Simulated scan of single mutants.
Amino acid sequence: MNFKLKFKDINESRELTENYTVQDLLNDLGLSAQTIVAKQNGELTIEDSIIDDGDEIQLVQIIYGG
């Protein structure tokens, strides 16, 4: 079971474990949900969403400014 990850220069297939969530992925990458927006199969999603086999997860860096 695999899912596709897109983030900055990363465009890869990753192995999927049971009940693996978007938050688990962020933790594995050392990223914070406060600075990242996640899309699951093109739709905005929350950190508690479980990633399914074949899903595409895109992580987008939030840019603050003023």
Rank of each mutant, 00 (worst) to 15 (best):
M1A: 14
M1T: 09
N2M: 13
F3R: 01
K4A: 08
K6G: 06
F7V: 02
F7R: 01
K8G: 09
K8L: 14
K8W: 08
I10H: 08
I10A: 10
N11I: 08
E12W: 06
E12A: 14
E12K: 15
S13I: 13
S13R: 10
S13N: 14
R14S: 05
R14Y: 10
R14L: 14
E15D: 15
E15F: 11
L16Q: 04
L16W: 05
T17H: 12
T17A: 14
T17N: 13
T17Q: 13
E18L: 13
E18H: 12
N19A: 10
N19W: 04
N19V: 02
N19M: 06
Y20S: 03
Y20L: 06
Y20W: 05
T21C: 01
V22D: 02
V22L: 03
V22M: 04
L25I: 03
L25F: 07
L25D: 03
L26Q: 03
L26K: 06
N27C: 10
N27D: 15
N27E: 12
L29F: 10
L29K: 09
G30I: 07
G30A: 08
G30L: 10
G30M: 09
L31I: 08
L31G: 04
S32L: 09
A33G: 12
A33F: 11
A33W: 09
A33S: 14
Q34K: 14
T35D: 12
I36S: 03
I36V: 07
I36M: 06
V37P: 03
V37D: 04
V37F: 09
V37A: 11
V37R: 09
V37L: 11
A38N: 02
A38D: 04
K39D: 04
K39N: 09
K39V: 03
Q40W: 00
Q40M: 00
N41A: 00
N41S: 00
N41D: 00
G42A: 00
E43I: 09
E43S: 08
E43M: 10
L44Y: 10
L44H: 07
L44V: 13
L44D: 02
L44T: 09
T45C: 01
T45D: 00
T45Y: 00
I46A: 12
E47H: 12
E47S: 15
E47Q: 14
D48I: 07
D48V: 08
S49N: 13
S49V: 11
I50Q: 07
I50A: 06
I51R: 01
I51S: 01
D52S: 15
D52V: 07
D53E: 12
G54A: 00
G54I: 00
G54L: 03
D55W: 05
E56D: 07
E56K: 08
E56A: 08
E56R: 04
I57K: 03
I57Q: 02
I57M: 02
Q58V: 13
Q58R: 13
Q58W: 08
Q58C: 10
L59H: 04
L59D: 04
L59E: 02
L59Y: 08
V60F: 07
Q61D: 13
Q61P: 12
Q61L: 12
Q61M: 12
I62W: 05
I62N: 04
I62E: 03
I63E: 07
I63D: 06
I63H: 08
Y64K: 15
Y64P: 15
Y64E: 15
G65S: 13
G65F: 11
G66T: 06
G66W: 02
G66R: 08
